[in-house]
C-alpha cells in the first residue's frame, strides 16, 4: 500500500468510527464534540483532493460556525431527560441488519469502480494556475449560476420557516 492510500485508509476508517460515535453517544454535547473531530477529518480528505479552499471552508463554516450553533441550541434546551432514556428504538437490530447487507453489497462491487470517464477541464494544474477561490467563483457565476440562485432560494425558505414556526404566538 502506498503512502497516500495508507493516509486515505486512516481517514476513512476514522470517519466511519467517529460517525458511529456521534450517533451512539448519550450526551448530546459529546456527540457534537465527536462531530467536530469528524469535520476535521473530512477537511483532511479535501486536502487530499488538492482542494485547499474547500478544506478551509469545511473548517471555518462547519466546525467553526455550525457546530457552535449546535452547542448553543443544546445548551438552550434542557436535554437532561434525553440522557436517561434509551438511546435507540427497539427496531435497531433491523436497521443494523439492513446496513450490514448494504455494506456487504458495496464491498462486493467496490472493485468495479474505475476512473474511466474523460476528465473535466478543472485539472489540478488548471486550478493551481488560476487559484482556488477564483476558479470556484468563476464556475459559480457562469456554469452553475442557476443552481447557485436556487440554493439562495432554499436559504430564504429556511429563514421564512424558522420565523413562521418559532416567532408566531400560539393562541
Amino acid at each position: 500500500m502506498s503512502t497516500p492510500q495508507l493516509f486515505f485508509a486512516y481517514f476513512a476508517v476514522m470517519m466511519t468510527g467517529l460517525s458511529l460515535m456521534v450517533v451512539t453517544r448519550k450526551n448530546p454535547v459529546h456527540s457534537v464534540l465527536y462531530m467536530l473531530i469528524l469535520f476535521a477529518h473530512i477537511a483532511a480528505l479535501y486536502l487530499f483532493l488538492n482542494a485547499e479552499f474547500l478544506a478551509a471552508i469545511q473548517i471555518i463554516i462547519y466546525a467553526g460556525a455550525i457546530l457552535v450553533l449546535f452547542l448553543f441550541v443544546i445548551m438552550m434546551l434542557n436535554l437532561r431527560k434525553e440522557e436517561t432514556e434509551k438511546r435507540f428504538q427497539k427496531q435497531w437490530p433491523l436497521g443494523i441488519g439492513i446496513g450490514v447487507v448494504l455494506a456487504v453489497f458495496l464491498i462486493m462491487i467496490v472493485g468495479k469502480i474505475a476512473v474511466i470517464a474523460p476528465l473535466g477541464p478543472y485539472s489540478i494544474d488548471a486550478v493551481r494556475s488560476d487559484g482556488h477561490i477564483m476558479t470556484v467563483g468563476k464556475v459559480l457565476y457562469s456554469e452553475f449560476l442557476l443552481p447557485f440562485e436556487i440554493a439562495s432560494l432554499i436559504l430564504l425558505v429556511a429563514v421564512v420557516g424558522a420565523v413562521v414556526l418559532a416567532k408566531r404566538k400560539i393562541e
Binding site: 443552481p147 436556487i150 440554493a151 432560494l153 432554499i154 425558505v157 429556511a158 421564512v160 420557516g161 413562521v164 414556526l165
Partner: peptide
Amino acid sequence: YLGLELMALSTYI
C-alpha cells in the same frame, strides 16, 4: 437535487 430540496423544505414547514 436543489429543486427537490426547495420543494421538500417548504413542505416540511
